[in-house]
Write a protein that binds this DNA or RNA. Structure first.
Lengths: 140, 140
DNA sequence: GACGATAATGCGAATGATTCGCATAATGTC
DNA sequence: GACATTATGCGAATCATTCGCATTATCGTC
């Protein structure tokens, strides 16, 4: 289902970044993940494919990919970052306070308003973080 | 300038929360702070008023006040929470990537859009976090 | 104004997530 | 295939935060 050669890493080869077995495993995990796993969970899943992957390598690889813009780091709750591949369109997150589930959404209008507000304050937005925390609507 | 009896703590007395010297010192620090200090900075400032304040007490007091809704915890960058008194109107933050300065702003329209988006997804928003990260506009 | 039940404190140790140092292993280049 | 150099695994180190516990202080009551 997935290509043998993984793009983000291959792209980085020219910059001296090496494509290793463990990095491919970690990238594979991120590709397959529909949730937003933590480092510990990424480690566990990566080890299923390649038991040699270590915790330090997970963190180092995530750092490399994040710096390259291929991975996004989220700090939803206070207990550990959650990661996702930055391969799709930009989006924000709605976190279910009961289940911890993460729903992605996008609003061009909100983003436009953000830019306007920043401009009024004399700033150019580099990036932003919008997180909604809520619970499933009850009743109706 | 500030009252002798501090409100948030006094309000909590009925619930078994005690008003102590160190808690008053910490609250005083938050009152005087126009920035969004970290726990360590709050400790340093509180000690200027009462040297007996310990690190553990700062964290415990912030937790008490946060639970009571009198203090807001922010996780702007990855390195430690930054606190502020929740005595004014709700607002969001614009963080200056160059200086770390925090500008507060508010947009009723954005909040309305957030509620609408959440409703479409079948959620009621409990709270939210909107942070813009940018740099001062150059030129003009 | 002292008494006592109980909450809060300071200290230092423990925790949890993340990062580092270093010797060894692997990658990509020539 | 040999080499320079980047990555790895391991365990130790960090950083912010929390805990355990013996001691101290608050506050409602007499």
């Amino acid at each position: 289902m997935s290509n043998l050669i993984d793009d983000p890493l291959s792209d980085l080869r020219a910059e001296g970044v090496r494509v290793t077995r463990q990095r491919l495993a970690i990238l594979h995990v991120l590709r397959e993940a529909s949730d937003h796993p933590r480092a510990e969970e990424i480690l566990a899943r990566a080890r299923a494919q390649d038991p040699s992957v270590s915790q330090a390598t997970v963190y180092r690889t995530l750092a490399v990919l994040e710096k390259a813009g291929s991975v996004l780091r989220n700090e939803f709750d206070g207990s550990g970052a959650r990661f996702e591949l930055a391969d799709r369109q930009h989006h924000d997150h709605l976190i279910d306070l009961d289940t911890g589930a993460v729903v992605e959404f996008r609003s061009a209008l909100i983003e436009q308003l953000q830019a306007e507000i920043a401009a009024e304050l004399g700033y150019d937005i580099e990036w932003h973080r919008l997180e909604l925390y809520g619970r499933k609507t009850t009743g109706v």
